[in-house]
Write a protein that binds this DNA or RNA. Structure first.
Length: 157
DNA sequence: GCCAACGTTGGC
DNA sequence: GCCAACGTTGGC
């Protein structure tokens, strides 16, 4: 199976790309949306990830990361004390899954959402992120879209 | 199975 | 802080 690509959102105040670099690896826990979960379940080791900062001053893609562990049960859902606790998920029949992600490299500059929108009628016309009202935190990206977005780092902002 | 109410996401 | 869009919940 060919390498796949994804965009994963994180609020930098909660967990930024700097945090990922500091720890070298993270569990992508707390995803509580079925569609996003399904995407994570189809991820494979080595898949490319666009690390996106949401809910911040300049939302956009800040770095490249990679999947380093395939989907496994999000055990935070079993922990009553966790903010991600979900009584409907139990260890015998887990409802939520997560993958592990490791850093790749920071882009030369933030490729902002506003800039991505400039290509909404062109190369990024199919980008799920740009669909109206999209709120998914894990989004598939085609190889072409991935390459195009990464290449934008070389453009003058 | 419908749908109103509610909570959350996330850009602005 | 506002609010539009969306998913989930629960009454009926």
């Amino acid at each position: 199976m060919a390498k796949q690509y994804w965009l994963m959102k994180s609020e930098p105040e909660t967990y930024s790309y700097d945090d990922l670099e500091a720890t070298g690896r993270t569990e992508w826990e707390g995803v509580r949306n079925y569609q996003a979960r399904n995407f994570m379940q189809s991820m494979k080791i080595g898949d490319g990830v666009l690390f996106y900062h949401s809910n911040c001053k300049v939302p956009g893609v800040v770095a490249i990361a990679k999947v380093v562990k395939r989907a496994y049960p999000d055990f935070h859902a079993f922990d009553r004390k966790s903010p991600y606790y979900d009584a409907k998920s139990d260890p015998d029949n887990p409802r939520w899954f997560m993958v592990d992600v490791a850093p790749g490299r920071r882009l030369r500059r933030v490729v902002s959402l506003a800039e991505l929108r400039e290509y909404a009628d062109g190369p990024l016309s199919e980008l799920v992120l740009l669909r109206r009202g999209n709120r998914l935190s894990v989004i598939p990206v085609s190889a072409e879209e991935y390459r195009f977005i990464v290449a934008l780092e070389k453009k003058k902002p």
